[in-house]
Design a protein around this nucleic acid. Structure first.
Lengths: 345, 345
DNA sequence: CTGAAAGCGCTTACAG
DNA sequence: CTGAAAGCGCTTACAG
């Protein structure tokens, strides 16, 4: 009888332990685990028993080192506490886990240096691919850093100078639907509060907005086009400018949830009643906009589909199945609630 | 002259390449990179130049395998698209990156099997430690799975049967402050809509709530104690039950942001005016509660501090500096806005 | 101070 | 079909 206890310091069973326990070589066990081999049922039973008995867990680092890949992707986002990116992260995670991919989150605080750092992480093979959402798409340094990469897909916005596949919502159509809705409801003097002038998502929303105004049979004017960061602070500032206009526009479009939050907080504090004194259309529609005062009409981004499709695209890239970078655009939707009413007077 | 081009297939420079390029051994370069050596300035210059020229990036998998640790921690959460956990993730990420730790996100959809899976990831040394937030703390299987682990800190809620350090908000105090505020505002008939009966966070909130009621000099009754998941769906169901009461309580406390969202949507659709027909206090205060109709009075959780402290604790654990599992409680705060008014009549 | 060498735990081409 | 062995790219105790 062999009563020698296992050395108590051994923390984790290795493949070697499993192989010894069932009288096989590590090669065979490894092949079995990677399904690249057929074994008699009896052997399978022995291996499974040994794995269970030793509570064997493969060491991912060893595996990744040997394989040269990690079966993990990264999601680069400006700020995970922003509901839009939080929802994007949730949908990406869901899709990634269905494909057996791990996900690591890479929040950048919108700092280009951190964004470039994460590209380095890709180079270091920490991850096999990157889903890249940024608000710095107009920074040439970022575009340059993207040049050398091959498994990056751009999500939600473009980066100038980057030749990478992209997946985004139809910003142009979103801007168009927003303006058309406002015009149909009788508004003739509109305010536009958008994102950064250099961003393609922002340009798209403004372009669509103008397009609907130009297409209107009635004379419609855009009383203000205020661009800035996709932030509530920018929304607050813009609200002040909008309210200082004479006359004040009867309706405003805010190009993101964050912006509309800022807008609303100033309106509220100044006693400007949404839907009565001023109509509002928002963009994104990931927050609880239906619970606001009044429930907010908004252009909804297809966040779920965006995340899933991004994962599929990066997988194609990793597998080398995408020859030329493709660019996909997903439709948006106008959700009518109660923040747009015909103008007074 | 040596004009031989580099083999074009070589994808990444390794430590060996760097060492060769500057006429040193890999050992020396490695030591330099890990700051465990002092080198003459000239040598440092040579190494740095070679690293830059070759664009050398250390391979993390090799490093982790060799070191036996990954300098990465995991954050296990039920749902990253829930603003509470999204904010928690943001604060954890911030703190982790300050300590030079990577963060991987582990969303569980509240499924115990996935939670246990992530514990396995820890065992596989994929991460050095885990920050664990769960709504399944009453599941004995989870408690059992936690037994074998040594570098897990429980965040935001307890797990029965687990002997792990914990960091949470003061739920009891939160429930107490909520009820006391309601009582001070003149309410005598209260509704309580809480989380799962088995969870310590939930029990704490209810306990504090009852304690304030018991401490009241005036007779106060809790007309309903409705427990269920921390979800908006549960909030919607509970709203129906609350409104079916006769008489309807003049005020209700909702033990999470999600629950209050559900409550509000039913109130809105039934024409029950918050602050007029019924007063409301929420819990968490991470969403844009100040923009709701009316702005919501709430107990605010110290999410930032929670995240940071959790990271510090797991680091202590990893470094072996925590002998006995400690348990910390962070204070909450009552944020008075406009959803609590004296009862009518 | 510096380097040659072993070792971390896998995978897989190569040989029997 | 199966195994011995090389290799992935690091770190570090050990020797000079």
């Amino acid at each position: 009888m062999n009563d020698k206890p296992d050395p108590p310091t051994r923390r984790h069973a290795t493949l070697k332990d499993v192989a010894e326990a069932c009288g096989l070589s590590v090669a065979t066990v490894s092949r079995y685990l990677n399904r690249s081999i057929k074994l008699p049922p009896a052997t399978i039973g022995r291996i499974d028993a040994a794995i269970a008995a030793l509570n064997y867990q493969p060491n991912q680092h060893a595996r990744s080192l040997s394989l040269g890949r990690s079966e993990t992707i990264g999601l680069v986002v400006p700020d995970i506490s922003n509901p839009y990116f939080a929802h994007l992260a949730a949908s990406v995670e869901q899709a990634a886990s269905e494909f057996g991919l791990g996900l690591v989150l890479c929040p950048t605080l919108s700092r280009t240096d951190r964004e470039i750092d994460y590209l380095g992480r890709l180079a270091r093979r920490h991850v096999d691919g990157l889903l890249f959402a940024t608000n710095n798409g107009d920074d040439p340094a970022l575009g340059r850093a993207l040049q050398g990469t091959s498994t990056v897909v751009l999500v939600d916005d473009d980066i100038i100078g980057a030749r990478a596949p992209t997946i985004m919502a139809d910003s142009d159509q979103g801007g168009f639907l927003a303006a058309r809705h406002l015009i149909e409801m009788g508004h003739r003097r509109l305010g536009y509060v958008g994102g950064p002038a250099g961003l393609s998502s922002s340009r798209g929303r403004l372009g669509g907005f103008r397009r609907a105004v130009a297409a209107s049979e009635r004379p419609v004017t855009i009383a203000a086009e205020i661009q800035g960061p996709y932030s509530s602070e920018h929304g607050r500032l813009a609200a002040g400018q909008i309210l200082a206009l004479d006359p004040v526009p009867s309706a405003v479009f805010a190009a993101s949830d964050e912006i509309v939050l800022g807008l609303l907080s100033v309106f509220k504090q100044r006693g400007v009643r949404v839907g009565i004194d001023i109509s509002v259309v928002a963009f994104d529609d990931v927050g609880p906009l239906q619970l606001f005062d009044p429930p907010l009409t908004a252009i909804r981004q297809p966040v779920e589909r965006l995340g899933r499709r991004a994962v599929e695209m990066v997988l194609d890239l990793i597998k080398g199945e995408m020859r030329e970078p493709v660019s996909e655009v997903l439709p948006v939707e106008l959700i009518i609630r109660e923040s747009v009413k015909p103008p007074r007077s």
